[in-house]
Nucleic acid binder design. Structure first.
Length: 744
DNA sequence: AGCACGCCGACT
DNA sequence: GTCGGCGTGCTC
């Protein structure tokens, strides 16, 4: 309980690693006044148990009652740099996400999980009937082992000396600490770790910049040298050499003793970017992303925070890399939707990068062949510098693009078939892009019309030939592929809507001697499997690469001269405000994979929407034409970049419980809308996929002129719904998706 | 999330 | 009796 004293009382706002919105306030005991500092970890009571939290801020007022004191300060010095902490706090508030969800991005996970670090004997000395299950389990485990070992294992894990631990133990009258099984195992297996080495490469490749490239470098360099925030959008057609600009800017940044963060939309591209930068700069970047063991990640982060690493390359989470002398952030393929994480914490790596640039007063570079409408809009408005690269390097021409109608019976139409044939004869490589996986998207009984749907979701099951299953791409449900209709026992099952497996099968029939690789979610589950496929293409062990959108992203395939986009327009009919934008990007990016080597490229697009502006402008490689057609449509309907958007996702166990909550939500939303003339609310409406994993989904779109108004509206909504009791809410879960990548 | 409590029915 | 399943409430 907080005591009233004459002196101003001190409180700490703490980030707790739980999915709960908001910070938690604790009082700072007198003897800890000097020890409690933002960025340090503290041990605190959390409900009936303990938690490790991170101090975000020191304040002198608290809005909640029943404030508990901090039990113990864990660290001697902050474990998170002030700039990174500030950024995470900003992100939590901006995206309405639990601050604790950002903790694993800025602190090694095992350093904040109290459950796997310590369980406290207090539990066991209290009334036996209130002992927690976890404590009992640990007690049983450890009673059988030696007592002294516990302290040394614990000290190893917390990185503390046994003397320090003794102090913690006596200071809070804790009689014993215990360690769980996992930690004991992890600590026991801890071997000697070799320091991460920043080996330099031997194959340094200096380059001469083109005039356009040089101009971009000259424009951005002053911002680096004078430490000034500015967003610079580099709009360069595919193959125009954006990487050379990045490398050149990185060099300038390193020259003044500063460091650089590079972001790429996905792990494979981050790796590729790292290799290219290493060749240009003679320095090995440190690559970080979420798909590494906690130990490896921690090792690399410690190299970064020590100041040893000057260049960090990674996927979106690398935007929180603990570089203290940052001089530049580069976001490659800035338009890519995967910068927005679709699970909590829902943040956009590109936008957080821009915020970090603003906070640290350094320039940010966004690069893209197909900029997002948002970024281009800001560039036209003069808010961002716009730098254009209109030509491919080395005078390579843009690929010739041809539109053809899809064939009724085959995925590979006649034109595409003959182009593939010619290519194979010339020993050139081919890329076939199809935007869905599996063999058939729909299966229906030809006799009675029975359709196969997922039992957990409102979606049809996809037929996969290799595994001989029907599978749901949303929840993962699988059942054996049918041979007869379960309703009428007819064996005449119609399969429609081909995917990557169908294309693979047709290719095998049409060109039995061609060496074929398929790259989609099904063939890349294993670690490094996508890298292996890409290597085999690079080594010319593959003639035809078939893949879903993962093959269109930024990869450099010098041997590919023909790109075929099969049913390129099926993204066009997705009910989402970004459908056109995404179609334009996909076609342009897929086409951009052609002719990156010495031979000219050719692209064949099978589409029924030849007249649509996103297809038409992609054919001409004309982003400006696309923007000119798309922007007014967005403006007319009120979508980004003309308004700020948030999607409220409502998720219920049953339709009834959902409907009940929806009627309350509707009243609350109506009030919010009437209170501000600048807020527009659409919905709640059923989500496009209403039922997912046996839960029912609704969406509310909230639009506003600017972020602060939007933020006010969302805060008002949560303010009222959070007040409702569990029973009133009916177990309905509500999430906010701020600045969403899609409204589905 | 993760936990505890409390209210049920089912079972030694 | 009492064990356990799950619906509810709570975390500064």
């Amino acid at each position: 309980m907080a005591k009233r004293t004459n002196k101003k009382e001190t409180f700490a706002k703490v980030m707790i690693p739980r999915p709960l919105r908001g910070f938690f306030t604790y009082s700072v005991p007198d003897e800890m006044q000097n020890g409690v500092v933002p960025g340090k970890r503290v041990l605190v009571s959390f409900g009936p148990r303990k938690a490790i939290g991170l101090v975000a801020e020191i304040t002198h007022h608290a809005e909640v009652k029943n404030i508990k004191p901090i039990i113990q300060v864990i660290d001697d010095a902050p474990v998170v740099a002030p700039s990174v902490l500030k950024l995470a706090v900003w992100a939590a508030e901006h995206y309405f996400e639990p601050p604790g969800e950002f903790l694993p991005l800025i602190v090694p996970r095992d350093k904040i999980e109290v459950d796997t670090v310590v369980a406290i004997h207090e539990d066991l000395t209290e009334k036996p009937e209130t002992r927690s299950k976890a404590a009992l389990e640990i007690y049983d485990l450890l009673e059988k082992k030696g007592g002294e070992r516990r302290l040394s294992l614990l000290s190893a894990d917390l990185g503390k000396t046994q003397k320090d631990l003794g102090k913690i133990l006596s200071g809070v009258t804790l009689k014993k600490f215990f360690i769980t099984r996992q930690v004991a195992r992890r600590v026991a297996s801890r071997g000697n770790t070799r320091p991460y080495s920043l080996a330099t490469s031997q194959k340094y490749e200096p380059v001469t910049l083109t005039d356009d490239q040089q101009k971009a470098v000259d424009t951005i360099t002053p911002y680096i040298e004078s430490k000034k925030f500015k967003v610079n959008l580099i709009h360069g057609v595919t193959g125009s050499g954006k990487t050379e600009i990045y490398a050149s800017l990185a060099k300038k940044t390193l020259a003044i003793g500063k460091s650089v963060i590079f972001l790429a939309p996905e792990i494979a591209l981050a790796d590729a970017m790292s290799r290219r930068l290493e060749r240009r700069l003679n320095i090995k970047p440190v690559v970080i992303h979420s798909d590494m063991t906690p130990k490896e990640r921690e090792k690399r982060l410690s190299v970064i925070s020590s100041g040893e690493a000057k260049i960090v390359v990674g996927a979106r989470s690398a935007v929180f890399a603990p570089l203290e002398d940052l001089g530049l952030i580069v976001v490659d393929e800035e338009h890519d939707g995967s910068y927005k994480q679709d699970t909590s914490p829902r943040y956009n790596g590109r936008d957080v990068a821009i915020k970090r640039g603003a906070m640290e007063n350094i320039p940010v570079v966004l690069g893209a062949a197909t900029p997002s409408l948002e970024s281009y809009y800001h560039a036209l408005a003069g808010k961002y510098n716009l730098l254009e690269l209109k030509h491919r390097i080395d005078g390579r021409s843009m690929p010739e693009v041809m539109l053809v109608k899809p064939d009724k019976d085959w995925e590979i139409g006649e034109k595409l078939h003959s182009a593939i044939k010619t290519c194979l004869e010339k020993k050139e490589q081919i890329l076939l892009f199809i935007n869905r996986r599996g063999l058939a998207r729909h299966i229906q009984c030809s006799l009675c019309g029975y359709t196969f749907e997922c039992r957990n979701c409102s979606l049809s099951l996809v037929f996969h030939m290799n595994s001989k299953t029907l599978s749901c791409h949303t929840c993962g449900y699988e059942e054996p592929a049918p041979t007869v209709c379960p309703d009428c026992a007819s064996t005449d099952l119609w399969m429609g809507g081909g995917g990557s497996e169908k294309v693979e099968r047709e290719i095998a029939d049409m060109f039995p001697n061609a060496r074929v690789a398929r790259m989609d979610k099904d063939t890349t589950v294993k670690k490094r499997s996508s890298a292996k496929i890409l290597e085999s293409v690079e080594n010319r062990e593959v003639d035809i690469l078939i893949g879903t959108q993962m093959v269109t992203k930024g990869h450099d395939f010098p041997g590919i001269t023909l790109v075929g986009a099969i049913n390129a327009d099926n993204t066009l009919h997705i009910p989402d405000f970004r459908a056109s934008e995404r179609t334009f990007q996909l076609i342009t990016q897929a086409g951009g994979r052609a002719g990156r080597g010495d031979s000219a490229g050719r692209v064949i697009i099978q589409t029924l929407s030849a007249g649509h502006h996103s297809v038409e402008s992609a054919v001409k490689h004309d982003f400006k034409a696309f923007y000119a057609a798309e922007a007014p449509l967005r403006k007319a309907v009120g979508y980004p970049p003309y308004v700020r958007l948030a999607v409220i996702r409502i998720d219920a166990v049953s339709e009834n419980k959902g409907e009940h909550f929806i009627s309350r939500a509707r009243r609350i939303l109506g009030r919010i809308e009437s209170e501000s003339p600048d807020i527009y609310i659409l919905g709640p409406v059923e989500a496009v996929v209403f039922k997912v994993r046996n839960r029912y989904h609704w969406r509310v779109l909230i639009k506003a002129k600017n972020h602060s108004t939007l933020s006010w509206g969302v805060r008002r909504f949560f303010g009222e719904t959070d007040e409702l009791s569990y029973a009133e809410r009916g177990g309905v879960v509500v999430h906010c998706d701020m600045d969403p990548a899609s409204v589905m």
